[in-house]
């Protein structure tokens, strides 16, 4: 029953309807069902969410930090890609 044998899971919470799931943290669990329960018990004790996703950390395909330059830096000087030239209508909170 040592945690050494339990894989790591990442937890995503949707805080309320209409918003997207956000990464909240990680935990250990023996299987998918247990991971979901643990996520509920660990991360939603104070009404933090209305929906939970869990995924095995080793199933996530992550970008390589060594490739950051090629991956992300070309976007740095392209201000025209930002939608900052629009006026946001009154009453719209999440765009």
């Amino acid at each position: 029953m040592s945690a050494k044998g339990w894989p790591l899971y990442e937890v995503f919470i949707r805080t309320r309807a209409g918003l997207s799931h956000r990464h909240a943290g990680s935990l250990h669990a023996a299987d998918d069902q247990m991971a979901l329960d643990h996520a509920r018990d660990t991360y939603t004790r104070r009404m933090e969410g209305v929906s939970l996703w869990v995924v095995r950390s080793d199933r996530i395909i992550a970008s390589d930090p060594a490739e950051n330059a090629a991956f992300f830096e070309p976007a740095e000087d392209k201000i025209y890609r930002h939608p900052t030239f629009y006026e946001i209508p009154d009453g719209v909170e999440n765009l």
């Binding site: 250990h28 643990h38 660990t42 004790r45």
Partner: peptide
């Protein structure tokens, strides 16, 4: 409890 996550669950 043997695991932190179970610890929280039981206390809750």
């Amino acid at each position: 409890e043997a695991e932190l996550e179970e610890e929280l669950a039981n206390a809750n």
